[in-house]
Amino acid sequence: METVLSTHQLSKQYGRLKAVDKLDLSVPKGSVFGILGPNGSGKTTTLGMLLDVIQPTGGSYDWFGKPGSKEQRKKIGAILETPIFYPYLSAVKNLEVVALIKEVSKDRIPQVIEQVGLSERQHDKYRTYSLGMKQRLSIASALLCDPEVMILDEPTNGLDPQGIADIRQLIINIANEGKTIVLASHLLDEVQKVCTDFAVLKNGTLIYTGKVEDVEKGESKVIVKAEENLENTLANCPLVQGHIPSTNGRFEVTMVTGKTSADLNKYLFDKQVIVSHLETQTKSLEKQFLELLNENK
């Protein structure tokens, strides 16, 4: 598979602190790549190095198979940490500066402003904007060059629930156009909802990288409730690896690999156990994330 971004032993040291330590990442084309990690794990430092604002102390990185350059950055739409614009300029004027830097036409400005829902305030000075509006403008700015790759660092920071949902939909839409997105976040739910791949950083080292769908695979857990005979039947069921009582008379059942809640339902029905509650629990990224962090203590 074609690789958009790869890092080789990329490192950044601040005095004695290793902010990023020998990082090897590879982002496939067309993926939505989540970079996860607790605060201070090196997410922003990594992105800063990839965008040439932080000088690596070791290692290297390639964009589209070539070492990073300003010409490549012109084709990348990126926001890092908080939105940054000239406070005395309007949204439109700020985007004009970006368009000149990126050497793209100004014609797309109304379109991207519309896309993030800022049209009504587009001629107001940036400093009069709320945090949510600033965040939207930075996404508009990242979209301006119709980028092949977008880098978004905590893009839903400071947004209200509607704003978060809008931005999430926007990311999904952009991804569906075949674009690659690198998304740094500590909101695991967000990464699980939009990402295809993810990497976990801790104290500057990569502790896991893989596909989001793999997290959801594997042995599944089913919550089941029935009025009578449930526990006995479960104990003798060949589809079940184990079961433990849960709240409200429910049981948490671990299925044999490959078997699903539908199989369990059919089995119980055949044994004349009528199920009143049946729920499949997908393994959440959050759980996996916390497990990973604990394993790597």
């Binding site: 965008l51 040439d52 604002v53 300003k70 010409e71 950055r73 012109k74 990348i76 990126a78 890092l80 940054i84 614009f85 000239y86 406070p87 970006v98 830097i101 990126k102 050497e103 700015s141």
Partner: peptide
Amino acid sequence: YKTIRQNVIDGL
């Protein structure tokens, strides 16, 4: 304003 940083990110 940190705009120098954003200018560099954008491709300057």
